[in-house]
Design a protein around this nucleic acid. Sequence first.
DNA 1: TTCGTTGTTTATAATTATTCTAAAGAAGAT
DNA 2: ATCTTCTTTAGAATAATTATAAACAACGAA
Lengths: 136, 136
Amino acid sequence: MTSKQEFIEKLRNSRLRPTKQRINICEVLFNRYKTFHFTINDLFNLIKDKTGEKVSLATVYNTVHAFHKKGYLKEIPINSNQTYFDTNVTDHHHFFDVKEEKLIDLKNEDVGPIEIQKSIPGKKIKSVEVLVKLED
Amino acid sequence: MTSKQEFIEKLRNSRLRPTKQRINICEVLFNRYKTFHFTINDLFNLIKDKTGEKVSLATVYNTVHAFHKKGYLKEIPINSNQTYFDTNVTDHHHFFDVKEEKLIDLKNEDVGPIEIQKSIPGKKIKSVEVLVKLED
DNA sequence: TTCGTTGTTTATAATTATTCTAAAGAAGAT
DNA sequence: ATCTTCTTTAGAATAATTATAAACAACGAA
Ligand SMILES: [Mn+2]
Ligand SMILES: [Mn+2]
Ligand SMILES: [Zn+2]
Ligand SMILES: [Zn+2]
């Protein structure tokens, strides 16, 4: 996903109007080779840096939540003062470098298949996530 | 762990003075048959309910952090507005019922062994936690 | 293209979990 | 008892996130 046209289509397909702000956010989030792990604040700053245009913090929050809801972003469960998101929405797991406060992808094959043997009546499994904390 | 004397010893062993407040908190946290998953606010309210004595919120925070540092409590990585803690400090994993906002223990045998095949130079693994989100 | 509608952005305020501060109090040692 | 050190506490400060509501932009129909 690389061109502005594609972002516009992507937004249209989700019934999100393709505004200048959302397209800029798409550029920062999705115009990359590698997966991107970020906090709202990371993103907020990168938008200014990479596009030269400022988007209000409220819009960054709104858009990230909209993309999350549409399945374009994944929320990574860690305890931090800030919430982390991930552009890689496939099933995968993470290292979290506690000192650097950085997430690193783990491929499924790096972890192996996880079979949950217990079940709770009336509930079904929504996601299975492994978090591996790293220290020096 | 059941008697007040034991809590006093436990606190002394950790070089934490056995104050009335800390002992009350121990009663609520550790005088139970089953593991206990809680937020600071849960605990704050339970102390009043179960002991009849009020402990200030700041002390609840201080004590939970002290116990966490001493290894008497485990912090559970989930994305929530509040931080969850666990009196079960053994290696184990969790279900998180997203609707009820409740944690449920998973025994290691319910998940199976997890072998991380990837390593990061200069870093070592501190913990491996599986979080299974549940929906209706 | 214009117009009315609906969705979006924004600055700013509100909320809320958590941490900090500093003074009063309690525990421990001598 | 006295001194020191640790602890508790109310309240203030911090900081991430969410809510508000007015200005603005995209859309679709005329
Ligand atoms: Mn979200
Ligand atoms: Mn802690
Ligand atoms: Zn990832
Ligand atoms: Zn547990």
